[in-house]
Design a protein around this nucleic acid. Structure first.
Lengths: 341, 341
DNA sequence: CTGAAAGCGCTTACAG
DNA sequence: CTGAAAGCGCTTACAG
């Protein structure tokens, strides 16, 4: 066990000062070709790499971005996590990941840990934080972006897709498909996405002069959504369409419906929200509304890095358009194809 | 932007020395009740938390564990990531996550970053690293555990399940079910899991005096596995069972088979490997071999923390038993139930 | 370009 | 128990 090698050891071996070693490893610092050569050689021989922690301490930049996520079972998050990680790595940042139950207290605790680690920025994916803590992060100069969740608060930037709009478009699609008894198993009403999609649903129904066949909170949980679906089709008056608050719940709904002997897309239409990879797989072929994860990730990373590396420009929340993706789980209105939307 | 608050500022406000502040925040250090009270009060008022980076520098312990993963599309990894993160957080450690394509070079690069961050330990999930780098990690005193992958090398600890055994048991199950034309779409042959499961398959076939109907490398990739499946059933001699190297590929195989008009579990049997959550969902109901993720995670965390916190005890690789999980995608031998195994 | 020196925010012997 | 001081491994003015 040799332990770590330091810049002083490299300096000794290269016959230069410790500062010289540091300069060779600092992009933009000045060192002669000769010095650089000697230093790199010694570094290679010793297996030296600058200690990022020490560098972070003196420079005040850790190049660590904290990511707080709730549940990874919903495929939307692993996908986002991977994209985020790749994009950040490409720009020299690293993701410190925390999984936290989606309660303000535990999220707050985790974010305090992140601040103790001098994270340069924080991404909260689908979780909310207390406004008190948001204020403190702002005071400490740590930018926070909320990914796929909207929350008011000073210094809080939201990156979302147009959820009200999406809920409305899905509902209009269903209405155009001549569905008359439309139910909504909503996303968790404690979240902005759950509320917004529901709002879109309600507006479209109202505009068409329709009453919801049923409206329940599926909590973004598979078992809850499945129970709701079973109940909805248990009586002899049943919905002819169900708009489900996200894909993760919609898969459960599809499973429950089939178990009850119904064929989705024929006996009953089901539409989800997100368009996770699994939605495209044959066994589900879920009609859904695509959230543009790529663009959401790109925006998140840009906003964060802009705030970290320049201190101008108050960042603004962004909202991206999504799009309906037609597959087999819902009846398609006559004359409509995926292109026609 | 007030910036971070330091222990000196807290000391000034509390009317004690900076060392005193440090002691109050160091578990096990001695401070009078009176001092502690004053310090905590001042800290609260100022919103102080010790800087983890500074603490890490002087103590030599960062409490950061690096996790390197390849692809998160296979549900096995998000599940493991979440469990790992929870277990580690509970013990005061944090996960710095890197996604890296599964090539020795990129994994090596990422691990060097991890070492630069003074990670206390490294978990490489289903990726391999060069033996050169493994040696360096060992020299630097950083424990590395390979999760779900076996690799020889000094200082490398493997946490796996009994893959040869699993492959054998699946094959025996298929043989007992009177399948006669058994194909294997293997996991990537560049990985120990892929090779071991295939080895188990081969041994069981040989013991039964059977020839493999087909044996191909599915590369752990869904599109590849689907193409293999399509080919296997294209001719008029087709397999009556397919053992697929992992669940992720098996879902693709199931989709491809159904698309070709075959009913899994009736016209043809399919067995996967892993038992990810999705395998239990109605649309797939995949018969598979369960890897005990919980125990694998627990062992990984214990081994790592033992090595970090005590410097005795050469750690040893561990291998856990898995178990067959019967669902609907494969014909069940007469007289056998899930209990009967 | 280069070296000596200060300083980042802590922990930890060392004396009292 | 408590304070003054050294030191963790770097970066970055400051002189030359």
């Amino acid at each position: 066990m040799k332990g770590k090698v330091t810049s002083s050891e490299v300096a000794a071996r290269a016959g230069v000062s410790q500062s010289a070693v540091s300069r060779v490893f600092t992009p933009g610092a000045s060192a002669s070709a000769e010095t650089a050569r000697k230093v790199r050689r010694a570094a290679r021989e010793l297996g030296y790499r600058p200690n990022s922690l020490a560098r972070a301490m003196v420079s005040g930049k850790s190049r660590i971005i904290g990511l707080v996520v709730a549940y990874l079972e919903n495929q939307f998050y692993p996908v986002a996590l991977e994209l985020l990680s790749n994009a950040l790595q490409a720009r020299g940042y690293h993701l410190l990941v925390f999984t936290a139950p989606n309660s303000a207290e535990s999220v707050d605790g985790v974010i305090q840990d992140l601040m103790a680690y001098q994270a340069d920025g924080i991404i909260a994916a689908s979780v909310s934080m207390s406004s008190d803590l948001a204020g403190r992060a702002r005071q400490a100069g740590i930018p926070v972006v909320l990914f796929n969740r909207a929350q008011e608060g000073e210094g809080l930037v939201n990156v979302t897709s147009a959820n009200v709009d999406g809920g409305r478009k899905i509902t209009e699609f269903l209405i155009r498909g001549r569905h008359e008894r439309i139910a909504h198993i909503a996303g968790w009403q404690g979240s902005s996405t759950g509320r917004d999609r529901r709002e879109g649903f309600l507006r479209a129904m109202k505009a068409a002069g329709l009453e919801p066949f049923a409206l329940v909170d599926g909590m973004y949980k598979r078992p809850v959504a499945m129970a709701c679906a079973r109940q909805l089709v248990a009586g002899h008056a049943r919905p002819d369409a169900i708009f489900v608050g996200n894909d993760h719940m919609a898969f459960g709904v599809l499973d429950a419906l089939r178990h009850a002997g119904l064929e989705p897309g024929k006996d009953i239409s089901v539409v989800g929200y997100d368009d996770v990879p699994l939605a495209a797989w044959g066994a589900y072929a879920l009609t859904t509304f695509r959230q543009p994860v790529n663009r959401m990730v790109e925006a998140t990373v840009n906003i964060l890095i802009d705030q970290i590396e320049t201190d101008t420009a108050e960042p603004e929340s962004v909202e991206f358009e999504g799009e309906l993706v037609l597959r087999k789980s819902a009846r398609i209105p006559e004359g409509l194809s995926n292109e026609g939307l």
